[in-house]
Computed example of a mutant assay.
Amino acid sequence: MTYHAKVIAGGKIVIPADLRREFGIRDGDTLVVARDPDGGLSVKTFEQVVRETQREARAIFGPDYTVEQFVRENRADWGDEG
């Protein structure tokens, strides 16, 4: 389904109510707006970006890699041996 969003004063975008409900977007939520490789715009919820980043990290490091491992392995590079 295609939706239309209106740009109002100050560059604010009004997202249709159906989409706000579907994606759980509430007043004050953070949305991430980015350029697509084809020159378009992408609008995602912060939670969507976090999930995508986690998926990409799992693909690179493996499903069992932890933040603690990352920190431990990189302390020397950061100049923090403690």
Rank of each mutant, 00 (worst) to 15 (best):
M1H: 09
M1R: 13
T2I: 10
Y3A: 15
H4R: 15
A5G: 15
K6P: 08
K6G: 10
V7D: 07
I8S: 10
A9S: 11
A9C: 07
G10Y: 06
G10E: 05
G11Y: 04
G11V: 03
K12L: 07
K12H: 05
I13H: 02
I13T: 07
I13W: 08
V14G: 02
V14A: 08
I15C: 09
I15R: 07
P16S: 09
P16T: 11
P16N: 14
P16L: 12
A17S: 14
D18W: 04
R20K: 14
R20I: 10
R21A: 13
R21M: 15
E22P: 02
E22G: 03
F23Q: 08
I25P: 09
I25C: 08
R26H: 15
D27C: 13
D27L: 15
G28Q: 14
D29M: 01
D29H: 01
T30Q: 09
T30H: 03
T30N: 08
L31H: 02
L31W: 00
V32K: 06
V33K: 13
V33Q: 08
A34C: 12
A34H: 04
A34R: 15
R35C: 07
R35E: 10
R35M: 11
D36L: 15
D36H: 10
P37A: 08
P37H: 00
P37S: 06
D38I: 00
D38K: 00
G39M: 03
G39R: 01
G40Y: 03
G40P: 08
S42K: 10
V43R: 02
V43I: 15
K44T: 09
T45P: 07
T45Q: 07
F46K: 13
F46L: 12
E47A: 15
E47R: 13
E47K: 13
Q48P: 02
Q48M: 12
Q48Y: 02
V49W: 02
V49E: 02
V49T: 01
V49N: 01
V50D: 03
V50K: 10
V50N: 04
V50G: 03
R51H: 04
E52L: 10
T53Q: 06
Q54F: 06
Q54H: 05
Q54D: 06
R55H: 11
E56Q: 12
E56G: 08
A57H: 06
A57S: 07
R58V: 11
R58Y: 10
R58D: 13
I60T: 05
I60A: 04
F61Y: 11
F61H: 12
G62Q: 03
G62M: 04
P63C: 05
Y65P: 02
Y65T: 01
Y65C: 00
T66A: 11
T66D: 11
T66M: 11
T66G: 07
T66W: 10
T66S: 13
V67Y: 13
V67I: 14
V67F: 13
E68W: 06
E68V: 14
E68L: 10
E68K: 12
Q69T: 11
Q69S: 11
F70E: 09
V71H: 03
V71R: 09
V71F: 04
R72W: 01
R72E: 03
R72A: 08
R72L: 02
E73N: 05
E73P: 04
N74P: 00
N74R: 02
N74F: 00
R75W: 04
R75K: 14
R75I: 05
A76C: 01
A76R: 07
D77L: 01
D77A: 01
W78D: 10
G79C: 05
D80F: 15
D80Y: 12
D80E: 12
E81I: 00
E81S: 02
G82A: 13
